[in-house]
Design a protein around this nucleic acid. Structure first.
Lengths: 337, 337
DNA sequence: AACGTTACCGGAAACGTTTCCAGCTCTTTT
DNA sequence: AAAAGAGCTGGAAACGTTTCCGGTAACGTT
């Protein structure tokens, strides 16, 4: 079942059928209708390989996902997938680990498939600027403000919450609840990473409210928003015997790990220690206690990422850097002092 | 940069280069080496569209994911994606909702892309056998024993835990801990669904241990393993005032929702009520209390699903139905009576 | 010396589209 | 009435591969 069969049975040329299929204007209404009807009844589906070959492009958009521990990316991937489908493209995801070579392989391999665009989704990427310029297609960094620290803003697009502001607001919320001794668990990802931005927001809030920063209250963890590391980090903090009434974590899953550590040490949340987080996963509404968290607009982020990418791909639109707002969802993990 | 360029610079024909690239035997060692070296230095990458066109096939494997609430599928998708990548294929996932038409669209749309195989991942699919026979490629149902109830076993492959046995073992664990009044939350998915199998396992265990089944202890919920429905269901159960000391849930996330409902009603887990689940998500180790759950071998399931699919695709191997073992991971959500 | 075999290689068709170009028929303009 | 344009259509090249078929050269066998 090819375009030729349709052409033959309709008594027209393949060119004409092709024109109908591609919605070209210069074909008579009668012929158009005849062809479309035949396509319908025969159940003809164009051969994508042939189409891609002659157009020398594909309908594939790659999504590179890094940061396996964070369930937030799972939700993001789903919304991104839906949007890509809706736009008539094909999503091809690739999950990568921390392994340096596999990360690099990501960029290379994405080029083997004929991708039209790329979405980077995740905590951290180790690409060098040189490697990135090798990518000949537009790409957007989703949920990651400074995906590639050393890159020109005009060379890529990004969609994320305002990480600095979000952490600021979270901290502010704790402060307004009367907390002064606020600890923070910060994954020590790379420079200018998402965690650095959020950490800066945390510090800014403290400063603005005249609260001296106590470096003993800072827990740096390895990995990227991993639960085991977070659990361990909070345990260390507790062993230090330093005093604090609230804890800021940078994601929902790490918040759950942190709460677990607190609870395992006999501290109940929020009575003995409030915990606030960032993400707003569905599952966090069923944590015990329910998480108070800054909800990222997952749907909107996915939609906008794809929109921007498509706009650059199809219309050559300029790059864009979108900062969305995360909204506080009050749960039970924070209480007034 | 095409195969012709390589041929020209090597002084051979395109046929020869093609043969080298496809590891055909009849090409001399010297030529082979010369070509490979040129391919390397030039950084030549074959055009997949052209290759697919002439071979009239692609390297794409579709993964249809249904059941958005269940984080287990997110973990499965990741391992499946890794395996597909490793095998040199391209994964194209599609997330579908409960909407009947979108479900059907799944089958149809998967055929538009030239897919070589399909993996169904998720709680329930509404395809009719007639629709399924339209799928001209091999497919395997992953983590879902009776994906398509009314289908011949020889027509598809499947990989999952033994759902009946797993629920049996979970129930057995509760019984051995001294529990007699055991409630269960069962999503009312379709006939012969995953939840029916697990429910049967639950009933079998009760029977084998001589415990009369009390229908008041059964909570049927709408949706497929959704947290809100589960929460509501457990609330209903509690309002009934019926007595029970343990609760079986069929997934980790619903377990968390169930625990939340119990806790919100002043019952602490496990002191007032033990809770056991099935899945073994990472996050369940950080629930409060830590979940006691039957861990599904995610890695193995993903690996085997892809292996079986590839074996059928490439070698025409017969269909296979693999039942793996879920192992109990003791957490804190179950205690002796 | 003739033949068959083996190992290797090139030519060319084929895959199913899209798109450029040319041509045809009508209508409108000069 | 001729020229110009508009609207529609078909022919054919091109996209980059794979693979079938045939051919050559070298070599061993009779």
């Amino acid at each position: 079942m090819t375009i030729k069969d349709i052409a033959k049975v309709c008594g027209v040329s393949v060119s004409t059928v092709s024109r109908v299929l591609n919605k070209h204007p210069d074909v008579s209404e009668t012929v158009r209708r005849r062809v479309l009807q035949e396509v319908e009844t025969q159940g003809y589906i164009p051969n994508n390989s042939a189409r891609d070959l002659v157009r020398s492009r594909s309908d594939a958009i790659g999504v590179v996902v890094r940061g396996t521990g964070n369930l937030f990316f799972a939700e993001m991937l789903k919304t991104i997938g839906r949007e890509i489908d809706r736009a008539g493209y094909t999503m091809v995801p690739r999950f990568i680990d921390s392994d340096a070579d596999e990360v690099k392989a990501g960029a290379i391999l994405e080029r083997e498939k004929k991708l039209q665009g790329l979405i980077f989704l995740g905590g951290r990427f180790d690409y060098t600027p040189a490697e990135l310029t090798l990518i000949g297609v537009p790409y957007v960094c989703c949920s990651y403000t400074n995906c590639f620290g050393s890159l020109e803003e005009k060379d890529y697009s990004s969609v994320s919450i305002d990480d600095h502001l979000t952490a600021y607001r979270a901290t502010e919320h704790l402060i307004r609840c009367g907390h002064r001794r606020i600890a923070a668990v910060v994954p020590s990802c790379s420079d200018r990473s998402i965690s650095e931005l959020r950490y800066d927001g945390f510090r800014s809030a403290l400063r603005d409210y005249g609260i001296a920063f106590d470096s003993n209250l800072l827990v740096e963890t390895g990995g990227c928003f991993e639960m085991p590391e977070t659990y361990e980090g909070v345990c260390r903090l507790l062993r230090c015997g330093v005093d604090f009434t609230a804890l800021l974590t940078l994601s929902d899953t790490t918040a759950m790990a942190a709460m677990k550590a607190l609870q395992d040490h006999g501290r109940s949340v929020p009575q003995d220690c409030s915990v606030i987080a960032i993400d707003g996963l569905n599952v966090s509404e069923y944590a015990n206690p329910t998480l108070t968290t800054m909800v990222q607009p997952v749907e909107e982020m996915g939609r906008e990422s794809v929109r921007i990418l498509l706009d650059t791909m199809e219309n050559g639109a300029p790059t864009e850097h979108l900062r969305l707002e995360a909204k506080l969802r009050a749960g039970q993990s924070v209480c007034d002092l």
